[in-house]
């Protein structure tokens, strides 16, 4: 089963670029990615640019509206994701707990929908 692990965190929390801890933080991400690759569960994963770079768009009734910023102005913003192929939720949760940002933010684990043909 495929699970997406959505990484939400307050962008001001946790190690910041340029700080001493930031190197170790990035290192931890590299190690996590290597782990999921080695275990054969890695499908995809990316970090996102900060929420300030987001643009939100709607096309309601044929009218396109564009707004500066993310969909929801909350303290915690989507900062990245991993797509993992695990045998069940327990396995997915085990990996999600190891994502470095779980220490400062939250990881939402969602199964990917499978369509019947």
């Amino acid at each position: 089963m495929q699970y997406i692990c959505l990484i939400y965190k307050n962008e001001a929390a946790g190690p910041q670029p340029g700080s001493e801890e930031f190197g170790a933080y990035i290192q931890a991400y590299q190690e996590f990615t290597q782990l999921v690759q080695k275990d054969g569960v890695f499908e995809a994963g990316d970090a996102l640019q900060p929420a300030a770079t987001a643009t939100t768009i709607t096309n309601h009734n044929g009218k396109v509206e564009t707004t500066d910023g993310p969909f929801a102005e909350t303290k915690e913003q989507l900062g990245g994701y991993y797509l993992l192929d695990c045998k069940d939720l327990d396995e997915a949760l085990h990996y999600a707990a190891k994502i470095p940002s779980a220490k400062h933010g939250r990881i939402e684990v969602r199964p990917v929908m499978v369509f019947d043909n």
Partner: peptide, 11 residues
């Protein structure tokens, strides 16, 4: 069913 919560004794 959808989230794949397993039927097993945990590790």
């Amino acid at each position: 069913a959808l989230a794949g919560i397993p039927y097993k004794v945990p590790c």
